[in-house]
């Protein structure tokens, strides 16, 4: 049948047209994951904003490239990098051991511990005994999963696509606490007086080298040492020319490069 063959051919052509995308020169393909204020934000007009996005633009500028952003679900962000959907991840990714098995990292571009945020009168402690049976929300595929598995193994861990959904459930009272990075956690508390009134970190800053690692870095595929060197040099430049400090002050009123 003549038509069958032409049908297959046109279907195949369409599939290729859908999938194929040229990789332009002078472009750094950057993955972010929105729903993580104030680092990765989707604005009302559909544009991207937040510390990570602005920082990425600083890095691209210093590499004489333009950033091309891809907004991707957090739990697919490393598989996407490995599948060459983009070149780097600039999305507040903690440099930890489990991830190092899959990807490489630049030097950290900011550092922050984690915190367990709960109702002020929650009355439990952020350790294994205190969190037994408590529902704790985390973002899926984060270092916080690792921390709960290690230090709060008896808690009822709930995994969310974004931390914003975990906050919604914390406000609704569906979960007892959220385990988040301290900086965005504090920003969330500040973002609404009602939050600051009802909720607070119920622990000291939590550290764990194995889970949280040495800070947040730019992730890239293994073996791309040239790109890694370029990225590290660009990070250094943003430190030297003061653009990093300006950005950090604008967002947080302080320098988050180091503790």
């Amino acid at each position: 049948m003549l038509n069958r063959r032409s049908l297959f051919a046109s279907a195949a052509a369409l599939m290729v047209a859908l999938g194929a995308q040229a990789q332009a020169e002078g472009v750094l393909r950057v993955a972010i994951s929105t729903g993580y204020p104030p680092f990765d934000v989707l604005n009302a007009d559909g544009s991207y904003g937040g510390f990570d996005v602005e920082f990425a633009n600083l890095i691209c500028e210093r590499m004489n490239k333009t950033c091309e952003f891809t907004d991707i679900e957090w739990d697919g962000i490393i598989p996407g990098l490995l599948a060459n959907k983009y070149d780097v991840i600039i999305a507040s990714m903690g440099i930890n051991e489990e991830r190092m098995k899959q990807v490489d990292f630049s030097e950290p571009y900011y550092k922050g511990p984690s915190a367990l945020i709960a109702k002020k009168d929650a009355g439990f402690t952020a350790d294994e005994a205190g969190t037994e049976g408590k529902a704790i929300g985390v973002q899926r595929a984060t270092a916080h999963e690792c921390y709960i598995g290690k230090h709060m193994a008896k808690a009822d861990m709930r995994q969310y696509a974004t931390s914003e959904e975990a906050y919604l459930d914390l406000q609704a009272g569906r979960i007892d606490a959220v385990l988040v990075d301290t900086i965005p956690g504090e920003e969330w508390l500040k973002s609404d007086p009602a939050n600051a009134e009802a909720f607070a970190p119920i622990s000291a800053d939590l550290y764990d080298m194995e889970c949280f690692g040495v800070g947040q870095g730019i992730a890239l595929r293994k073996g791309e040492d040239e790109l890694k060197a370029e990225l590290n040099a660009a990070i250094l430049k943003t430190r030297e020319d003061g653009s990093y400090l300006e950005l950090s002050n604008r967002y947080f009123g302080r320098d988050i490069y180091d503790f």
Partner: peptide, 18 residues
């Protein structure tokens, strides 16, 4: 999958506006 369809925008707008 993170594609910006009706549901994606609706859900993320719902999150941002609480």
């Amino acid at each position: 999958l993170g594609l910006h369809d009706l549901v994606f925008f609706g859900v993320s707008a719902g999150r941002s506006t609480r």
